[in-house]
Simulated assay, not measured.
Amino acid sequence: VLILDCVSVDDAQIGDVYAFDFDNVPNIITWAGSAHEVEMLQTLRLVEINGDLPPVHIIGIVPEVIGEDTAFSLSENVKKGAQLMESQAIAYLAQNGITATKIANRDLQEIANLSFRGF
Rank of each mutant, 00 (worst) to 15 (best):
V1K: 15
V1S: 12
L2K: 11
L2P: 08
C6Q: 14
C6W: 08
C6H: 10
V7H: 01
V7K: 00
S8C: 07
S8Y: 02
V9A: 04
D10M: 09
D11L: 11
D11V: 05
A12F: 01
Q13M: 15
I14A: 04
G15C: 02
Y18Q: 03
F20V: 04
F20P: 07
F20I: 01
D21P: 13
N24W: 04
V25H: 04
I29S: 08
T30V: 12
W31R: 06
A35Y: 07
H36E: 02
E39W: 09
E39F: 11
M40L: 12
L41W: 11
L46T: 14
G51N: 04
G51S: 07
D52K: 12
P55I: 01
I58L: 01
I58C: 00
I59M: 03
I59P: 03
I59E: 02
I59S: 00
G60Q: 04
G60N: 07
V62L: 00
E64P: 04
V65S: 09
V65I: 14
G67T: 02
E68I: 15
E68T: 13
D69K: 10
D69L: 10
T70G: 10
F72M: 12
F72Y: 11
S75A: 06
K80I: 08
K80A: 15
K80C: 04
K80E: 13
G81N: 03
G81I: 04
G81M: 05
Q83H: 08
L84S: 05
L84A: 12
L84D: 15
M85Q: 10
M85F: 01
M85D: 07
M85A: 06
E86D: 05
E86L: 09
S87V: 13
A89D: 00
A91G: 14
A91K: 14
L93C: 14
L93H: 06
Q95F: 01
N96F: 03
N96Q: 05
G97A: 08
G97I: 07
G97N: 13
I98Q: 11
I98A: 04
A100Q: 06
A100P: 02
A100C: 12
T101D: 06
I103A: 02
I103Q: 10
A104C: 11
R106Q: 11
E110L: 13
N113R: 02
N113W: 01
S115V: 14
F116P: 15
F116D: 13
R117M: 15
G118C: 07
G118N: 15
G118M: 11
